[in-house]
């Protein structure tokens, strides 16, 4: 299945790119999903932001992490052929080099999705409302 990779504004671009290239070169059948969604705790605000208005901070952090995500993806696409060629010549060392790779295998396919965090859990909210209605109904019984 796909590998999920979260990009935040405090991640180092160089380590993100290095990991992504290594993953895509060594896992030819697995897609890599880079995203800026908050982690499971929903916390994209760091301790150093205390005292700032939360919504403004969240919006600014989102803007910088989206910009970083796009830059990281551009670098990955640019560096991928080089990384693949180098990996391939390592694998066939002493065998005349990696001449068997076709040119299209150097291209990465890219699929973009833009959404809103609030859109992610509409069902969970409905369920919790139903759960509360059910609790009230049982209390009344």
């Amino acid at each position: 299945g796909p590998h999920l990779m979260r990009v935040t504004d405090h991640h180092k671009m160089r380590s993100l790119v290095r990991f992504a290239l290594e993953f895509l070169v060594t896992n030819p059948a697995r897609p890599l999903v880079l995203h800026t969604m908050p982690n499971s705790r929903g916390n994209i605000i760091t301790e150093s932001d205390q005292g700032e208005p939360r919504t403004r901070i969240a919006r600014e952090k989102c803007t910088t992490s989206v910009a970083k995500l796009i830059s990281v993806v551009e670098i990955i696409k640019r560096e991928f052929p080089k990384a693949l060629r180098s990996h391939s010549s390592d694998a066939t060392a002493g065998d005349g080099g990696g001449t068997s790779l076709s040119s299209e295998s150097f291209n990465l396919h890219q699929y973009n999705e833009i959404g809103c965090k609030e859109d992610l859990f509409p069902l969970a909210e409905e369920e919790s409302n139903e759960d509360r209605a059910e609790r009230i109904r049982m209390l009344l019984e």
Partner: peptide
Amino acid sequence: TPYMKITLSREPIPALA
């Protein structure tokens, strides 16, 4: 909060196209 998701793949993914 808006988010962005970019999938990179060596093989085409018709479901995402």
